[in-house]
Design a protein around this nucleic acid. Structure first.
Lengths: 149, 149
DNA sequence: TTCAAACACTTGTTTAAACGAATAATGTAC
DNA sequence: GTACATTATTCGTTTAAACAAGTGTTTGAA
């Protein structure tokens, strides 16, 4: 079922409102299409997001606040999210000796390996539904940037 | 903090991947900006979505399965979501006499009034950050449609 | 130097989400 | 008309989100 059919209101207040609803719809559509991959690896999108952030800075230690700052979905419960990832051996943590308030994390080899496995699967799910040319994709990105101002 | 800064990886696998991440980012950004409005009315986005669906068909009765079909975020727990809305007097339910398996819902006057109050507030939050012309917004919508194929 | 304020997380508690199993009503094939 | 599958929703249980309050650490000012 496509976007136009789903959204009941045949007339939108404005093109912007229509675009925004379309973004929400597309988001949920993405979640629906990648759900299986995350489920197969027993990961939530948030957890995957945290692991990806850590990989971006590997092998540095990254403080919890630094992680939170760049999380898409800023979980107020990062502690327990990391607890779960640590229990499963994907990351390690330590208190920063230079500032003992800070807790820092970094990926373990197992965490890196996990990302190596998950990444391509997400990519596949993504490739299957991308019907945009490179130029169109870049323009889409540009319009989103502009929308947020 | 903008999208380019947040996403650590300076190079994307593909423009499509970049666009998709941008959509995820924009979604969370929208949630962040409308959170206060929903909170003020003590509604979740899902609850609001259900109320909006019912309004789209008001004053008809709409079955739970019909609601679920068009929900952006298909809650597996629509029953209890509606329980909460009914308790607060925003909708009423009945079993469909013609098919006694079906439970149907429709907005109460209080529910309609709530939407009359919430709608414009969301709109305001939306207007504040829309920097797109009508043509650009329509094109954005078009690209999203095309992306999903 | 000592005390308050700011910081960086963590923990407790309430609440809702997620998943699967269960219930009940209806259609269908024999 | 009886058994069986299908449909439509609900319930039970496990799990994680959300929010607020609390703990320990550092900074800065009197």
């Amino acid at each position: 079922m496509n976007f136009e059919d789903v959204v009941q209101q045949p007339r939108f207040h404005s093109p912007t409102q229509k675009a925004m609803l379309n973004i929400l719809y597309t988001y949920h559509w993405y979640v629906e299409h990648t759900k299986q991959v995350f489920h197969d690896f027993d990961l939530t999108m948030q957890q995957f997001n945290v692991l990806r952030i850590l990989r971006g800075r590997h092998p540095e230690w990254v403080s919890m606040s630094a992680v939170k700052e760049v999380m898409l979905d800023k979980s107020p419960d990062l502690t327990r999210l990391c607890d779960r990832l640590q229990l499963r051996g994907y990351l390690e943590r330590e208190t920063n000796a230079a500032n003992r308030r800070q807790v820092r994390a970094r990926l373990t080899p197992a965490g890196l390996e996990l990302l190596r496995q998950v990444g391509p699967k997400i990519g596949e799910a993504a490739k299957a539904w991308s019907h945009l040319s490179d130029e169109e994709a870049l323009q889409l990105s540009h319009l989103l940037d502009k929308m947020r101002g």
